[in-house]
Structure formats: structure tokens, C-alpha cells
Simulated scan of single mutants.
Amino acid sequence: MPKHQSNKLKKRISILGNVEVEDRLGETTNKFERIKTIWAEIVPQTGSLQKQAADTILTNVTHKIKVRYTAGQDITKEMQIQFNGHTFEIKYILNPYFENKWLEIFVQEVLQ
């Protein structure tokens, strides 16, 4: 990321990977756990709320998360991002102009 934009990386995000863990019964299960923590800029893109049948609410909140290329080059779509109690599912990862300076990660918030 150019030096004049690196000051926008003010949010500390956690990258979660799907790892195998052994439970108390000795069985192996998959669970999202923190792999690393990096600096990022989080930009809200769009948001919508839709009321469904049986008073359930479906949300679609998407954000763009910008990180330095060197910090995020190992991030994949199978991972998740966590920030301030919010969990985001990765939809798309973009390397603008293939310059290897920063990554734009397009995500959707997961409601738990």
C-alpha cells in the first residue's frame, strides 16, 4: 500500500483458519481458530435487511477490507475475518492491478 494510504490501516483484525481440533472425547472436529492478527482498513460497502416468513430477518452486510499484500498474501476464501466481535466470511480477494502492494478482501458479515 502506498505510504500515504498506510495510515488508514487502523483496525486490528484476526484471520481465522479452519483447523482440526480434538475434543474431550478424542474425536477430531474442524473449528475456526485465530491464525494471525494484522492491520487493516474496513470500508462498509452495502447493507440490507429483509424480513422473511416467521419473523426471521435476513441480513446482507458487505464490507471491503484492505490489508498490505505482504501481511495478507496467504489469506484464502476458506478463512474468516474477525473484528470487534464481528465475524466476516470472505467472498472475494482482489490484488488491484496485480501490483502486490495491497489486497482488497470483499466480505459478508456472519450473524451468529
Results as ranks from 00 to 15, higher is better:
I57Y: 04
D55V: 06
N60Y: 12
F98D: 10
H63I: 10
I105R: 02
M79G: 04
M79S: 03
E78W: 02
N84Y: 10
I90G: 03
N84M: 13
K77F: 05
E78T: 06
E109F: 05
I81C: 00
E99Y: 05
V110W: 02
V107C: 02
N95K: 04
E78L: 09
M79C: 06
V107Y: 00
F88L: 03
T56K: 13
I75A: 01
T56Q: 11
Q73E: 10
F106M: 10
D55S: 15
N84W: 11
E109L: 07
E109D: 05
F98T: 05
K64C: 15
F83L: 08
T56M: 07
K66Y: 05
Q82A: 14
I57G: 01
T62V: 12
K66L: 15
Q80H: 13
N100L: 10
T62G: 07
T76S: 12
G85A: 12
T62M: 11
E78Q: 11
V61E: 11
Y69K: 08
W102H: 15
T59V: 08
F83E: 15
N84R: 14
Q112L: 14
I57L: 03
T76G: 05
I93M: 00
L103H: 03
Q82F: 04
N95R: 02
E109Y: 05
N100S: 13
L58S: 14
Y92S: 06
V107R: 01
Y92I: 07
H86N: 10
K91D: 07
F88M: 08
K101H: 13
Q112F: 08
Q80N: 10
K91P: 01
I105Q: 05
L94P: 00
A71D: 15
Q108G: 12
T62P: 04
